[in-house]
């Protein structure tokens, strides 16, 4: 039955040392990628909308560690670069899409918010707040219809939870016991509006109570807590027991988009999260305390990640613009 409870590190599943180091590397890759994207935006090489994921890395890395990339599908909103990298999409193709070049995942025709990879079962990248929720519910419907054993991870933000279509989806997913996990990335601000100013009920994990969908609040800055909650929810969906809502308590360090000066929150609030709850710092400390890494091995990871990001930026700034003939392609399937 519908419950809402909190999850902490105590429930953390057993993970291997190599997996732990892998999560650290994956989170660092997202962070460095996003920092580079911010820099390229500053240089005028990326334009339009660009929503950075910095601060929220533990959510997607923890959740992706809980699914099977071969059969499970993923869909999210417009703050999506981290999800693509965590799905195993190539950093070069993602960055080149941000710069609007032919080498981008969408041949430069989609941009930051519109990239897809059927191969990696990443279904976007959606720019309309909340629209990915019925779409993700439909992916789950397809898993169930095809009996392929797959589960859909459907990410949404604390802003999307006040869209009506989210509840239309919860209702159908609950009614038909669809294999979907709704991952609410609660970073406390819907653009510039704090959750307290937007939501009559701020315990987002309880948003499924009316549909008999269990909800769990999770420390979204702790990759292992995310993984533990994710594994339980995915197992539940895979067993045919229906959807789960996971409310990830997280934080974005940057503004909503590149042109947001973030005047709606204090510098102290941001600094406190960065200094005391940073998901990457926390895991680095844990790895160091356990003796799994040394100063040198951390530097080696840094260098490897930086090399991937530099290569992506080089590719994204040298890949040509799409051929003009691309204007008229991909409107309709032949």
């Amino acid at each position: 039955m519908a419950t809402a409870r909190r999850r902490s590190r105590a429930d953390a599943p057993a993970v291997t040392d190599a997996e732990l180091i892998g999560y650290y590397r994956d989170m660092l890759l997202i962070r460095r990628f996003e920092e580079k994207a911010g820099q390229l935006y500053g240089m005028g090489l990326i334009n339009g909308f660009c929503h950075l994921y910095i601060g929220q890395e533990a959510v997607v890395v923890g959740m992706q560690s809980a699914i099977s990339n071969a059969r499970d599908s993923v869909i999210t909103s417009y703050r999506d670069h981290g999800h693509m990298l965590a799905c195993g999409m190539d950093a070069k193709g993602v960055m080149a899409e941000l710069t609007g070049r032919a080498g981008g995942y969408s041949k430069g025709k989609g941009g930051s918010m519109h990239m897809f990879s059927r191969e990696k079962k990443f279904y976007g990248g959606h720019g309309i707040v909340g629209a990915q929720v019925p779409l993700g519910t439909g992916l789950a419907f397809a898993h169930k219809y095809s009996q392929d054993g797959g589960v859909c991870l459907c990410y949404l933000g604390d802003g999307a939870v006040n869209q009506g279509q989210v509840y239309e989806s919860f209702n159908m997913a609950g009614l038909w016991k669809l294999p979907v996990v709704y991952v609410i990335e609660n970073n406390k601000y819907a653009m510039g509006t704090s959750i307290e100013r937007a939501s009559a009920g701020t315990e987002l994990c309880r948003r499924g109570v009316a549909y008999n969908i269990p909800g769990v609040a999770v420390d979204g800055m702790d990759v292992l807590a995310v993984k533990a909650a994710g594994e339980e929810a995915v197992a539940r969906a895979r067993a045919g027991d229906g959807p789960t809502i996971l409310e990830m308590k997280t934080y974005r360090y940057r503004g909503h988009s590149m042109s947001d000066p973030a005047k709606y929150r204090s510098k102290e609030e941001v600094a406190k999260m960065r200094e005391q709850h940073d998901p990457i710092d926390q895991l680095r400390k844990a790895l160091t305390d356990k003796g799994l890494v040394t100063e040198d091995s951390l530097k080696e990871i840094d260098r490897a990640v930086k090399a991937i990001v530099t290569e992506a930026a080089d590719f994204a700034t040298t890949s040509p613009e799409p051929d003009p003939s691309e204007l008229w392609t991909d409107v309709l399937m032949a």
Partner: peptide, 20 residues
Amino acid sequence: TPITEMGFAGLGVGAAYGGL
């Protein structure tokens, strides 16, 4: 379906993404 046009239209599109 329930009376939920936006929901089932979106669900349908998602199912089409999934190959149905």
